[in-house]
Amino acid sequence: MNRNALTLKQLSISYGRNMVVQGVDLTEIQPGTLTALIGPNGAGKSTLLRGIAGLTRIRGEVLLGDTLLSRLGPREQAQRMTYMPQSLPPGVAITVIEAVLSAVQAGRSGQPGKAELDQAYDALEHLGIGALSSRYLSELSGGQRQLAALAQAIVRKPEILLLDEPTSALDPHYQVRVLGNVRKLIQAHGLIGMVVLHDISLAARFADRVTVMHAGQIAADGTPSAAITAEMMARVYAVEARVEHCSQGQIQVIVDRALDRAA
């Protein structure tokens, strides 16, 4: 099990002259916890996640314990973390089991044997979709496809799990099912989880830590109730909002109206 925390030091990412992520520092992202990255459109959340995953050129450092992840080769990086982009393409004519096997086999040579097949079935059964293994991706609902994508991620047994908007376009059943599974996995295996979310209430409900991004920088960071405040909603999202605490302790954000934006 992994005991090292993830640290970002002065992480910057530019697209041409446009600096999308500007000197982000995040410390002590602990194993067994889920961190939600939230923020308005264009705040740099997904870019930051791709930067951590090694998919885009960065300045600064990504550290796991003492290991400088950003200096490792692509292969070593892929062994330690798995990045899951927004959705599995439904138009590719392969079955769920083949999709999961491709996650196991892509980084190595040879053909899958019984052990690899078992790993893939374990991942699917773990997520409660064992019965879908021989279905084609096109036959799945959006939510089922997202669970299949999650199976691809966990079958690789990473230390760090990076998920880019895994619940966008899903109905409430699958939103809760996907994030509930993510949370369970992270806690059970001591993974470091980071997830980009648009839905603030979902972030508050499932994440241990909420990091709010605004214009490429960290605007707030802490426990859900510390990070998600009416003041933050006004400053970052330009909305007048109430942050209500429900009877079960969950945070609910109710947006009343849009404020005039400076820009």
Binding site: A53, L55, A78, T82, P85, L88, Q105, A106, Q152
Partner: peptide, 23 residues
Amino acid sequence: LRASWKLTALRLGEDRARSFGVD
């Protein structure tokens, strides 16, 4: 044929394949 799994992963998206360790 040796590259077949890598190509299958690539069909599922470039970022995904890279995250699976495909160069």
